[in-house]
């Protein structure tokens, strides 16, 4: 291997790693706020990618239907959860958030699609369609058992993953899609050429991370989320409902996932079931960050991307074996740092 090959591999690893980093961040966010290990995070990448590709191809993507169905389910779940304290106003607000909103987005999609929306409009619309799926899922699947153990929440998350993969096949079909990126430009740096879209991916990922850190550091909502993460009772005392924070965390997770999908679908072909492995790698990184530290998780994600890139050069058949085995020593190190017997939550 010469230097230029290594350079290309590093560059490829960083681009993939940037996506993993985004997912890792949102996994950390969701976990710290809600204690849910959000396995279906990857599905949002696939949904976002295929929705965007569908819009580009001039179709109303199947995820619009999914959005409406899940919205209705969230409506019913919320009604049931709040059945003892429902007023007309609350029902109306619920209906607006879970029934009208999806309908409005669906209507928008129908209006826009025939006019062959550009890249930016498609991307925004894809985000609009896919993002609300996450908070709806939160209401349907996780909120009713918000106080269950981490393990139970994890198994439920796996259940959500199963269901979403199955729905993905129904709505998007078995074949993959690619779409136009934000740019076709290719920049030459000596021996290495860099696709403009790759720069977009890395740049947007970095911008998003910066935005998130501003959000957590400066805004009241962000601080509230952090408070929930640190101390759930305390957060309630300050007047921030845990459920509200959970919903915001899921909205962010949905948006980050969908955006990752939009970014990556011009670099590669995405299938309805691509998300799981992408999510799992983001996950590996999040775990390395202890499901708590954003910067460590982001760095680890870049590391996973680069490792994967080199593994595919050295031993492509064993790439996944290498990537997923690499997490084990890290985890071991974690567990050995703690001495003695400790009770699990």
């Amino acid at each position: 291997m010469d230097f230029s090959i290594a350079l290309i591999l590093v560059q490829d690893g960083i681009v993939n790693g940037a996506i993993y980093a985004l997912l890792a961040l949102s996994l950390v966010l969701v976990f710290t706020v809600t204690r849910v290990v959000f396995i279906p995070q990857g599905e949002f990448v696939a949904y976002g990618a295929l929705t965007y590709a569908g819009l580009q191809a001039g179709q109303v993507p199947g995820s619009v239907g999914l959005l409406c169905v899940l919205g209705a389910a969230a409506f019913l779940a919320s009604l049931w959860a709040e059945r003892h304290q429902l007023g007309a106003g609350r029902v109306a607000r619920l209906a607006a958030g879970t029934l009208l909103l999806p309908a409005a987005i669906a209507g928008l999609a129908w209006l826009v699609v025939p006019h062959h929306p550009g890249v930016v409009v498609s991307a925004l619309l894809a985000l609009l369609i896919v993002t609300p799926v996450a908070p709806y899922l939160y209401r349907v699947a996780f909120r009713p058992i918000a106080h269950a153990s981490v393990l139970v929440l994890l198994i439920v998350a796996v259940g959500v993953h199963l269901a979403l993969t199955g729905l993905g096949l129904v709505f998007f079909g078995p074949e993959g899609s690619r779409a136009d990126g934000f740019t076709d430009a290719i920049f030459d740096f000596g021996t290495v050429s860099v696709a403009g879209q790759s720069l977009w991916v890395v740049g947007l990922a970095a911008a998003l991370m910066a935005g998130l850190s501003l959000f957590f550091g400066r805004t009241l909502t962000g601080k509230a989320l952090r408070a929930t993460a640190v101390n759930r009772v305390g957060a309630r005392l300050v007047g921030i409902g845990i459920e509200r924070s959970g919903e915001i965390a899921f909205i962010l997770a949905g948006a980050v996932g969908a955006l990752s999908g939009v970014l990556i679908v011009s670099l590669t072909t995405i299938y309805y079931d691509t998300g799981f492995l992408i999510g799992l790698k983001g996950f590996t990184a999040a775990i390395v960050g202890g499901l708590a530290s954003y910067p460590v998780a982001a760095l680890a994600a870049i590391g996973v991307g680069v490792l994967e890139s080199f593994a595919s050069f050295w031993a492509s058949a064993f790439k996944e074996v290498i990537v997923f085995t690499a997490i084990i020593p890290v985890l071991l190190w974690f567990s050995l740092r703690h001495h003695g017997v400790e009770d699990e939550e």
Partner: peptide, 20 residues
């Protein structure tokens, strides 16, 4: 002789090896 998975998002490593 390189291998990749159906849902892989990047085959850069493999293609570099082939081109080498």
């Amino acid at each position: 002789k390189e291998r990749y998975a159906r849902t892989d998002t990047s085959v850069t490593g493999q293609t570099l090896k082939i081109m080498a």
